[in-house]
Amino acid sequence: MSESNQLLVRRIRNGTVIDHIEAGKALIVLNKLGITGKDGDIITVALNVPSNKIFKKDIIKVENKFLEQDDTNKLALLSPNATINIIKEYRLIEKRNIGLPDVIVDIFKCPNLRCISNSEENIHSNIRVIDKKDIILKCSYCSRIIKINDLVS
């Protein structure tokens, strides 16, 4: 990492660094992970950071928050090449590469408003990943094909 980038990514004591987020997606990621900053912890967001690996990337650092598996699943859909670094006492204790799960349960709603999973019945949404390369999803209830943009928008 170049010296100028080091300024952007101030070390954190405890928390999560989400690196290699597709450029321009950091704010969507924050929103979908429910990271609002209301709890007072420091959040650092860097957009369009030069990167050797993906030309430009976004970075998010969240102090005192450790991402759960559900969060990882969300991130896999939003920015599948992102990496998650868990930091404790300034040390990297876990580096997670994100992989798309086979099924995403109860995280995103099916975008088809006429799907039974969007009715008043007590149903957990269930969305299968049928193509991990192009990220094609399918609602297990109404069988509609869902593109990633349908979920994010």
Partner: peptide, 10 residues
Amino acid sequence: RHPFDGSSKF
């Protein structure tokens, strides 16, 4: 027969 898509699966 039900008006919602996916109703029979449910």
